[in-house]
Each structure stands twice: as structure tokens, then as C-alpha cells.
Amino acid sequence: MTARPTAPDQMRLPLQRDLPEGAEGFVVSDCNRAAVEALEDWPNLIGGVMAICGPAGCGKSRLAQIWAERVGAVALHGAEAALIDPLEIEGRPVLLDRAKDIDDETLFHLINLAQAPGGALLMVARSAPSSWTVALPDLRSRLDAVISVPMEAPDDAVLAAMLDARFAERGIRPQKDVIPYLLRRIDRSAAAAAAVVETLDALHKPVTRALAREVVDDGHETSDLFD
């Protein structure tokens, strides 16, 4: 495998330095800055309910996990939230990933619990709660009142960091023009970044731009993730 160059024009990634422990490698950029800033002090002051929303692979679950680690939140995932004992989460911050998968009654109770002293509920979903279809009228009004902060698909800085991290995990040092080449040709998601790196690794060759072109343009098994 080729060594990573140290030339002055090598891409530099704006890694965030002041996020909590466990947030190493999370890149703050225009596509996610609003959500990062919204969670910086929350729920220290107001508690209640907040949602971060965005497309698949934009990093919203990763950011929510960082928040949960910082505040000591109970992490719940989709429908499994119905199994939790309310006494275990009363007065505590809660992270609810895949929030749209939960049943109306459980979600209603979680939102009510978030109003207790010390409580908070961070919901993660692809769309804003105000757009969800629910049957309970009281839940409808609560969802309409939820503060929703959008995240967008990864921009160049974030997608480059995803690619760089996936290469590093596999001990691969691609030539310096590989990541800029891939940025223009793969879907903007964490899944696409992982898939293309896995495919390149499986070829057991030095990762050059020519090899990247072969993978992207000649149609390997991950081609459904490419533009």
C-alpha cells in the first residue's frame, strides 16, 4: 500500500477540538453545525424535548450518541422504548433514536416524562416530528411544539472525514488524490463511504485513483451506493 503523503496541499480536515470525550473524529461543518450548537448546552437550562432530523447517513445518530455520553442519557432505540420501566428514566435525560418507529402511547409518555425536573428527551429521526402521522390528538399537539433542528447530507469536509476514518480503521493509506476523487462520485452518506472503502480493501491492491476509478466506474457490488 502506498504511504500517505505529507505535502502541503494534502487535504486538512477541520476536526472539532472541544467536543466531549468519545467525540474524536466528529467533524463540525455547515451541514451539521446548527445541530451541534443546539446540543452544546442542552438540556442544562431548559430541558424538555428536542429533535434532530436529517437523511440517512448524515451523522445524526452519532451526534446524538455524543450528546448522550456527555449528559448521561438513557439510550433507547425505536420500538424497544415500549419495554422500558418509566421509573428507570423519570428525572433523567433520554435519547430516543429511530423515534418515528415508536407507538403513540409510549411516545406520549416519554414526552410527558421529559417535563419532569432533570428530564429531557432528544429524538432522532429522518423527518421533523411535526410531519409525523399520529392518532392521539394530545400527542399531535406535543409533536407540533417540538423544537426540530435539521442536519443535511454530509458536505465535502464531513464525507472526507468519514472516508479517512474508514481507511484508517483498515490500515489503508490511499494516495492523496483518492479521497477528493471519491467525494465527487459516491453518495453522501456514511454507508456509501464504508462500502467503497470495503470494496477497495477487498481488492488487496495499493489504493490509487486508478483503482478508485475502477471500483466506481466499472460497477462493483457496491455500485448502488454511488451516484
Rank of each mutant, 00 (worst) to 15 (best):
S29V: 08
A75G: 02
R166M: 04
W132V: 11
A35C: 07
A73P: 07
I46W: 06
A73S: 09
P180N: 08
Q65T: 10
P43Y: 08
G59C: 05
R166Y: 05
A68F: 06
Q10R: 15
M151A: 09
K205S: 12
K176S: 14
P174Y: 04
R188M: 07
D41N: 12
L19F: 08
L200P: 04
L203S: 03
P43D: 12
P137L: 12
E37R: 11
D227M: 01
D227L: 11
Q175R: 12
A192Y: 01
T133F: 03
R33L: 15
V71Y: 02
L163G: 01
L76W: 11
L107W: 13
F226T: 03
I147P: 01
P93C: 09
L13C: 03
D227H: 08
D227W: 02
A128I: 09
V215A: 08
D41P: 00
L39H: 06
A135V: 14
F226H: 07
L200M: 15
S130T: 15
L45I: 09
R184M: 05
R12G: 02
Q115N: 14
E21I: 10
I89N: 03
T2S: 11
R213N: 02
L143Q: 13
A51V: 11
A193C: 04
E69H: 12
L183F: 03
P55K: 06
M123V: 14
L110F: 11
P93L: 10
S130Y: 08
A202F: 06
A125N: 06
F26R: 01
L19W: 07
D138W: 14
D97C: 05
K100L: 03
E80D: 15
D187R: 11
A116L: 15
W67G: 06
A68Y: 07
L107E: 12
A193K: 00
A210P: 00
L95H: 05
A194L: 07
S61E: 10
D164I: 00
V178W: 00
L83H: 11
E169A: 15
K176D: 15
V216C: 04
A165T: 14
A51F: 10
E221S: 13
L159A: 08
L39G: 06
L13G: 04
V197C: 04
D103Q: 12
V124A: 02
V27M: 01
P93K: 08
A99T: 10
A195E: 14
L143V: 12
A191V: 11
M1I: 10
P129T: 13
A194K: 06
P150T: 09
R4F: 01
T2M: 05
S131L: 14
R173P: 00
R213A: 15
V36N: 01
I186C: 04
V197N: 00
E90Q: 13
